[in-house]
Design a protein around this nucleic acid. Structure first.
Lengths: 346, 346
DNA sequence: ATTAGCACTCTTATACGTAGAGTGCTAAAG
DNA sequence: CTTTAGCACTCTACGTATAAGAGTGCTAAT
């Protein structure tokens, strides 16, 4: 049963997939033989289709309907049939000019990237912002808000700003806090935030620090500020695009999906997986391990400065999405975003 | 034709509205006479209904269906029939305990409030955060990111953090920038941001400043940082609740509404209108001047510290929402949020 | 190995008839 | 004069029947 596909099988499968991608309707043998240049009669095609169905690449919604590609078919298509072309110039320019605005801060940039992905793919665009911890430390500041509530502001070299409210056990004046931040800015300058964290741990162990109250308190505060860095921010744009797809005409299906979007944590997890790997990652249908997304495909790519991966971006759409055009969009956007962030980092 | 309603008319109207609120289906004369204690026969009710229809309070989807209340009917109901009770203890507690966490920063607080509104009302909750400009200035900081890009961070007394990327024409060192921020922190301390803005304009006109390069540059930078403060942030939670309502079963209707949510600017405008007025504001159906929301009602209330209005919060749902329970929820949440922010402001 | 031919299956669209909900009107009752 | 019972009428919703069309699987011929 687990035979390999002949050249002919592949051709037929490809035709079915391509037709289904644009029609969203079961594809019949006549259509395949007529619309796609396969010099075979419908009858022969039917035989091939029966084989493909047995192998799990196609299924029939009901006895006398055409065939619909399964997740497995899309997986095979993406892996073995599809040849990804490079993105056309026009879209390249739109992405470039959309992101290369000088005066954009990093939040805007992420949002913009997500919008662009959505716009060009006509699906939903997502961008997972760099984990704050992966950035180069730039500046820390303590601001006393009231009694023992202290607002800590940490800025990365990219200009990301993270703020957090912490409590101190002891009373501290603003002057004192200013001293702390000056001291910390000095010892953490130029380090990545992860390194900075480690450095603080080390420093705290040193004997001389234990006797210097100022230093000790400063380190204590910064430790509080750096602990449990939240997960990276997720930007989602174009949620409504997905509603247009006929596969989500069912209100309940759509509600479940939108709920998943609203929750974000699951999406973050999914995109996190793409972080670890170089290059485009595609999760098709049930491969998504989240039931809510079993009718969706996620095309994701990490974007990185130099060799260090910063975050992930991608497109979410029905499994029936137009892979041949979406993959290059995701790929190119990731490259450009990486390049821009690299420049921003000096 | 523009007669006033008799007591009986009102009773019937109320019955129809109440039934429609919970059934979402046209209400017939039999139902009114049976389910609601009106000692009249269906025939009489029908006469009354005919009158009410003529006056624009009811309409018939088709000849032989029951009646559906119009926007006007809901308006009348809200203004003249409904008596708002106070929120029950249980929900009061949920709101209080949901918002009174000591360690929450202001962003979390807004999000939480929005979630609570959504949860308790079973509709969509919105919170328009305080306009940044309306806050008391606490701290300003300039951080040089690269070449002539400077990140400005402004903190309000409530602990809101706003950051903005600006460009300087001339080269400035970080030391220089630190001097500027020290100077500015001094002259703007304790002012509201609006006042601070004005102050800066004044200062810049003073002659002595013109000759003190340091001061002048500092003022110039801060002016850039304070100009065109964005509109207040909008927090929307529970968008998917609205999908459940049968009136949005139509996919296209829903898409339009979700698009409006995604765009936010229109919603901000709407909520802004409620800013100006004291107390609960209700926009029913077409009163919303935004076509996208013509099937929705927005129940909004400003929340304020002392007598100064900070922002607005509310609930969005179908015009058929349960006003009697939602109004107290919005009202109470606004009060609690105002109180907490007042405390936070010292 | 391929294909023409054909019977068969299932969906979809259309029409039709009926049940039920609800109305409006009229005439009788209070 | 107000209320109500009664009844004919209207419109929707729903189920059934029917026909058209799409597509299949199988068989037999090429």
């Amino acid at each position: 049963m687990e035979e390999t596909l002949t050249a002919r099988d592949r051709k037929v499968l490809q035709a079915i997939i391509m037709d289904y991608i644009q029609s969203a309707e079961p594809v019949g043998s006549r259509t395949v033989s007529k619309k796609y240049k396969i010099e075979l009669s419908p009858a022969t095609i039917r035989n091939v289709m029966a084989d493909l169905e047995e192998m799990g690449f196609l299924r029939q919604p009901h006895t006398s309907a055409g065939r619909v590609p399964t997740d497995r078919a899309f997986r095979f298509y993406v892996d073995s049939i599809l040849e990804v072309r490079r993105l056309n110039k026009i879209d390249q320019d739109r992405i470039k000019s959309g992101l290369e605005h000088e005066k954009m801060d990093i939040n805007e940039m992420m949002k913009r990237a997500s919008s662009l992905l959505s716009l060009l793919s006509k699906q939903t665009g997502v961008v997972l912002a760099p984990r704050f911890g992966s950035n180069v430390f730039k500046h820390i500041e303590f601001i006393k808000l009231r009694e023992n509530k202290i607002l800590v502001i940490i800025v990365s070299k990219l200009g990301e700003v993270q703020n957090k409210l912490i409590e101190s056990d002891e009373h501290m004046s603003q002057d004192e806090l200013d001293k702390y931040s000056r001291y910390l800015n000095e010892i953490m300058g130029g380090l990545s935030l992860v390194e900075a964290k480690r450095k603080i741990m080390e420093e705290m162990k040193k004997e001389k620090v234990l006797f210097d109250k100022l230093m000790y308190r400063a380190l204590q505060l910064s430790q509080k500020a750096l602990e449990d860095e939240g997960e990276g921010d997720l930007y989602i744009e174009g949620k409504t695009n997905i509603i247009q797809s006929p596969e989500f005409a069912d209100v309940e299906k759509m509600r479940i999906l939108l709920l998943a979007f609203e929750e974000k944590t699951k999406l973050v997890k999914l995109l996190d997986k793409a972080l670890a790997v170089q290059g485009i990652q595609i999760f098709i249908g049930v491969e998504n391990e989240f039931n809510e997304m079993k009718d969706c495909t996620v095309v994701a790519a990490p974007y990185s400065r130099e060799n260090f991966t910063l975050g992930t971006l991608g497109v979410i759409g029905p499994t029936r999405m137009d892979y041949s055009s979406i993959i290059p969009i995701v790929d190119y956007t990731a490259k450009i975003l990486g390049k821009i962030l690299k420049n921003m980092n000096g």
